[in-house]
Amino acid sequence: MTRPPTVAQRRLIEAADPVTGRLRATRTQLDALVRRGLAFRHPRPPHDHFLTPAGHRTREAEPRSQETAGGPAPAGGFAARVGGEEDAPRSGPARLREVRGAWQGLLELRRMTSPDGATDRPCGWERTHLVRAAALALEAAGHRPADPDGDGYRVRATPQPEAVAVYAPDEPALAACTATLERAGWQAGAYTEPRTGVRYLLASPRRA
Rank of each mutant, 00 (worst) to 15 (best):
R154V: 15
G83A: 08
V82D: 04
R100S: 15
W103I: 01
W125M: 03
A88L: 05
G76N: 05
P45V: 13
L130D: 04
A25E: 00
T119P: 04
P72Y: 10
A102E: 05
C123Q: 11
L30Y: 02
P74L: 05
D147T: 15
G92T: 03
H56L: 14
Y153E: 09
A73K: 05
A54M: 10
D31H: 00
G92N: 01
W125E: 02
L30S: 12
T119G: 10
G117H: 13
G37W: 02
D149A: 15
V131P: 03
G83F: 04
R41F: 05
L51G: 14
S91V: 14
P74D: 05
R144G: 13
W103Y: 04
R64N: 04
D116C: 09
G21W: 00
G71D: 06
L23G: 01
Q104V: 05
L106N: 08
V19E: 11
T58V: 14
L130Q: 02
E108M: 06
G77S: 12
T119C: 12
A137D: 05
L136K: 03
L51I: 10
A54P: 04
A79Q: 02
V155G: 08
D151F: 09
P159L: 00
L130V: 01
P46V: 06
G142Q: 10
W103F: 06
T68R: 01
G124T: 11
G142W: 01
A157Y: 11
G124S: 14
T58R: 14
L30H: 06
A61V: 14
P46G: 14
P46N: 09
G84M: 03
G37R: 01
P45K: 13
G101L: 03
H47R: 12
T26K: 00
R44Y: 11
G83W: 02
A69Y: 08
R132P: 00
P159K: 00
L38K: 07
A54N: 06
L130G: 02
R36Q: 13
T158Q: 04
L138H: 06
T119S: 10
P74E: 07
R97T: 11
G117A: 15
R24W: 15
R57K: 12
E86K: 02
A135F: 08
R57D: 13
G101P: 05
G101Q: 08
E139R: 01
T128Q: 12
R59E: 07
D151W: 04
G92H: 00
D151R: 10
R44V: 15
L107P: 13
G105W: 06
R27S: 01
H143Q: 12
G152L: 09
A80Q: 07
H129N: 14
V99Y: 13
G92V: 03
G55H: 07
V131L: 06
R59C: 08
F40Y: 13
G150E: 13
A54G: 07
R144P: 09
V19H: 14
R95K: 10
A137P: 01
S114L: 08
A135V: 05
A137G: 04
H143N: 11
E60W: 04
R27D: 00
G21K: 03
A69W: 06
E108A: 08
F78D: 04
H143C: 12
G124F: 13
G101R: 06
A39N: 03
H143E: 15
D120L: 00
V99R: 07
T58H: 12
E126Y: 01
F40K: 03
G105A: 08
F40T: 07
